[in-house]
Computed example of a mutant assay.
Amino acid sequence: MTEKVKVKDYMTREVDYLSYNLTVKEAIEILLKSKHQNFPVTRNSNLVGVITAKDLLRNYNTPDKPIKDITRRRLIVARPDLNLDDAARIMFRNGLKKLPVIDEKGRLIGIITNTDILRSHIERATPRKVDMVKNLLESEYGIRVTVKKYPIPIDKLHPTQDRIYADELEGREYELKKGLAEPLIVIKKRNYYVLVDGHHRAVAALNLGIDELAAHVLEMDRDVELGMEKSAREKNLITLRDIKIMDYTQHPLVEITTKLIRRRHLQ
């Protein structure tokens, strides 16, 4: 049975918080320098409540008031061993975007967000693809394949797909900026990696100046010439810069959708 993923596996451990003895003025100054709309409030590392930007702005005219006087004391929290799916249900049912995570002594040790949960689902979907590629390699070439996961340098990737689409590339760049990128799937060769899945992500990383990406790496027990490598060479595909970026209107799904719309219009 697959072990269930816990909150502690995906929570952010470095949490921005406010000390309960700060004044409204001091808290607003911190708020203006941050990207957050609310903060956990702590006393001696223990979580005592939460305060929002609205709470602070409502008290703008009383800058010396301690924030402990306006801190919301009733809040929903998570424990690190809570199943991540259960945390997602709690957040959904209560309309929450994040949950503070506390230990058995009530100390703030992390925070779990909608983004963290989305990232977990993306990463958990990838192993099914990896198993499919692994089984295909072993049956096709009579080799044994070991799967590992670690970051790989972008400049060591050899692509096998000669074109990608601009709209999807934009989406992958957005995901990378948000930390939501699904790991690549690559096959390790002697001095490089054959890119099997994740061409849009790899080019997005190149465009953003990202040097490494997480990857599921398939390591073969002996070197063989892969059919996908031969096809790539025939297309003069050596580096990521050799991949053509197609306008979104040339995406095959756009063409199919257009045909369907026209067909329905003519009926």
Rank of each mutant, 00 (worst) to 15 (best):
K4D: 07
V5M: 15
K8W: 00
Y10Q: 02
T12N: 13
T12Q: 06
L18R: 01
N21E: 14
K25R: 08
A27I: 09
A27T: 01
I30C: 03
L31W: 05
K33H: 12
S34T: 00
H36A: 08
H36E: 08
F39L: 01
T42V: 14
R43S: 06
N46T: 08
G49L: 08
G49V: 02
I51M: 00
D55N: 02
D55Q: 03
D55L: 02
N59H: 09
Y60D: 03
N61F: 14
P66R: 11
D69V: 06
I70M: 00
R73N: 14
A78N: 05
D85R: 11
D86T: 12
A88L: 09
G95Q: 13
P100I: 08
V101D: 13
R107D: 09
G110F: 01
I111H: 14
I111K: 02
I111S: 07
I112M: 10
N114T: 13
N114I: 12
D116W: 07
I117P: 00
R124L: 15
T126A: 14
T126N: 13
R128I: 15
D131S: 11
M132N: 12
N135T: 14
L137Q: 05
Y141H: 06
Y141C: 04
G142F: 01
L157W: 07
H158D: 13
Q161D: 10
A166D: 12
A166W: 03
A166F: 07
E175R: 03
E175D: 10
L176I: 12
K177E: 02
G179T: 07
L180E: 13
I185F: 07
L195R: 00
H199I: 06
R201G: 08
A202E: 13
A202S: 10
N207C: 03
N207L: 15
G209L: 02
A214Y: 05
A215C: 10
E219L: 05
R222M: 14
D223V: 12
M228F: 07
M228P: 00
E229A: 03
E234K: 08
N236F: 05
N236S: 07
L240P: 15
D242T: 02
K244D: 14
M246G: 04
D247M: 14
P252H: 08
V254W: 03
E255P: 01
T257C: 07
T257G: 11
T257D: 11
I261S: 01
H265P: 15
Q267L: 11
